[in-house]
Amino acid sequence: MKYMMLLVSEAGAWESIPEAKQKEIFGRIGQWWGELNGKGKIVEGYQLQPVHTATTVKLNGGKPVVTDGPFAEAKETIGGYGVLNVANLDEAIAIAKSWPGGGKVELRPVVEREGM
């Protein structure tokens, strides 16, 4: 099964970590990601630029409106994502529990359709 793994953290949480510590965490994330990617457990994914770079396009009927910022004002923002290819939710949970970046991880099964 494939799961979208959304990596969530509080806005500003990352910036508040001292640089040396940031580097260390980055190192661990790189290793973690590389291992899971090598095993085919993470099939794709990216870290995202900070939330202040976000642009939202609203299509709620009528003319699309482009605005600055994320789709919802929230204390927590999505810092990155990965797509997992694993046997079941328990395997996805085990991976999420080992995520070195802290914060929260949301797991959502993707809709898999034939020929897509």
Binding site: Y3, L89, P109
Partner: peptide, 14 residues
């Protein structure tokens, strides 16, 4: 069914 919760006994460590 939809979230893929498996029908299994947890491992010793969980």
């Amino acid at each position: 069914v939809e979230a893929g919760i498996p029908y299994r006994m947890p491992d010793a460590d969980e």
